[in-house]
Design a protein around this nucleic acid. Structure first.
Lengths: 349, 349
DNA sequence: ATGAAAGCGCTAACAA
DNA sequence: TTGTTAGCGCTTTCAT
């Protein structure tokens, strides 16, 4: 392997062009107009820079300017439709602004989250976006100390602007649709609608559960404790819980509100062991969207969160002056069963 | 909003502790042993640093050491099961090593890819991983000039070590399974197996097409040009092409090899408009895995690529001395229809 | 066992 | 229109 020569610096270009380092710096940057560098000089310098394969050392620039050109985002995990859509949008918007996105996943672990924020601050990111924060107060404290603008996404914090999905409305509408689609509406345990999946201490789930309760209460079918099965996000536990529920009831309940794709994956693990017939008298909804889940052999009502809208709003907030502590809601979309949905990104493979 | 005080530096800590900046630097770092700093001094300094909420300015350190602690990875897109799994693995492995991962998506655009590599070089990343490169030669040229270790993932380059999925074997096995599962095996157009989706100029697709041809040729059913429909990755075009094909044949063909999840999403758009009965005499396979696709009303043979294995190998390669130009293959896994698959990540929501 | 000083590559004030 | 200079915060010789 041939060892390359040292990367060239503005001093090399200065020497080669006969100009001074500061002239080179200006000529290569945006502000050569107000420094009144002769156009000819600029051209020569740029030509030489290109020839030498020069590129700005961003660490040096960042050190000098005390801004890095990096923008950080923390997400719970990469391997998730919703969050990876956020990443895609975030990257596009950051690049539009000439910034370099750094996306890190916290695995929903507060310690890891703090470590990541600390690291991003060390690298002097210009802004920080935190999606699904596990400890918003701690994040705000760290960002305040570093004088860093930040914004919460999907899960709000009180120390910074926040942009969240309208979970209440999304769940309200979904529950209503389930109610409307049900064939039976008695009051036996089997006739009820059950909520399964998620974590009720989690902000988003709490909102959805509240909406679920409200719709059913308004319909004169107040929710009993056993109708809320917040068994986490793991497919496995959802499989176990839905199986246990079916056992208790003697059949599938008349309706199931599944509170995440991963829980739905688990529910499916059980449903697929049932004869298709037994699904006829049940209505299924899932909070979150997956194109394949939309094509199962039974209809599934889904909710699609607007990841792009969330990030767009978050960027708006963080760039806005004054930098207000407002809470912005972004509405999710209801997806009818078997719809072929056209996402901004699903056209790329 | 309360404006925070300036971030503290080693000079602040030096002043507060009565030690010199260089002592502080050493005490805060790893090499205070060989600098024979008194243990007591180290402790005092660390205590004060913690009190002051000190954290290293990585731009300054990076500038001085000429390494940033950042590791870059380029992927085609975030919003994709396979690539986002790679991101997740990459992040974990980078963090194990105390590095900070920066993941950027190229949208499969060579210009964008070059721009990203350029940017990452500007930030002095320590290593660069390029997944699904569109122009490996250009990437290698840039990395050589910057004396930057890099490795190609999923799509090989000749200028650096490469780790790729064994697309030939994955497709070979999948095609054989389709062949074995078929009920008919005549030679009419309808009795053939069709390959749909992907881009035949793309390395991975080319390997898969080659395997597809070979299996069928070996079975005495040489592949005709019209059996290969490499219509890209967009769901839409797959829908159009499968519909056109069914039109031509008067029914679904006896087998379909779908060459990506997005193409499969499109194929599904058409299949769902057909009576379930008409699928009975067809066997469907998809190169790539999705848990929901595994639960459709008809059996789907799938192939699951080992994203984690790819990244693990890539890291091994890039850290190895000597840094050899070898090509490593990682085998994908065949997933039987309706399998409930337990991925390393699917247990998290 | 510790301090002083140079310098990484860049930008911005200030001079000329 | 351009050059000189200081300094961002850190690490690393080289002295002591």
């Amino acid at each position: 392997m041939i060892r390359a020569t040292r990367k060239s610096t503005i001093y090399d270009i200065a020497r080669l062009s006969g100009a001074s380092p500061s002239t080179v710096s200006a000529a290569l940057g945006e502000n050569w107009r107000k420094r009144r560098i002769a156009e000819a000089t600029v051209e020569t310098i740029r030509r030489i820079a290109t020839e030498q394969g020069y590129s700005t050392n961003m660490q040096a620039r960042g050190l000098r300017k005390a801004r890095s050109g990096l923008v950080g985002m923390v997400i719970p995990l990469h391997d998730n439709r919703f969050f990876s859509s956020m990443s895609q949008s975030f990257e596009a918007l950051a690049r539009d602004r000439g910034q370099v996105p750094v996306i890190a996943s916290s695995m929903r672990d507060p310690t890891e989250e703090r470590r990541i924020v600390e690291t991003l601050i060390s690298y002097a990111v210009d802004y920080l976006f935190i999606a699904g924060a596990t400890d918003p107060e701690a994040v705000t404290a760290m960002c305040r100390a570093a004088d860093l603008r930040h914004v919460f996404v999907d899960l709000p914090g009180r120390g910074a602007p926040s942009v969240v999905s309208d979970n209440y409305k999304g769940a309200y509408d979904l529950t209503q649709r389930l109610l409307a689609d049900r064939t039976i509406s008695g009051q036996t345990p089997r006739d009820r609608i059950y909520f399964i999946g998620g974590d009720d201490t989690d902000y988003a789930s709490a909102c959805r559960i509240a909406a679920f309760r409200d719709v059913l209460a308004n319909a004169g079918q107040p929710v009993l404790p056993e109708q809320i099965i917040a068994c986490g996000y793991a497919p496995r536990s959802a499989t176990r819980e839905i199986a246990a529920l079916c056992d208790r009831l003697g059949s599938l309940p008349s309706g199931v509100f599944v509170n995440s794709l991963t829980a739905f994956e688990g529910v499916l693990g059980h449903l697929s062991s049932l004869p298709l017939e037994s699904l006829r008298n049940s209505v299924i909804g899932c909070y979150d969207y997956d194109p394949f889940a939309a094509y199962l052999q039974f209809p599934v009502h889904m909710v699609r969160q607007d990841a792009h809208g969330l990030i767009r709003e978050a960027y708006r907030m963080i760039e806005e002056d004054p930098y207000d502590l407002v809470l912005t809601m972004v509405e999710p979309e209801q997806i009818a069963p078997r719809t072929y949905y056209d996402s901004p990104f699903s056209d790329r493979g």
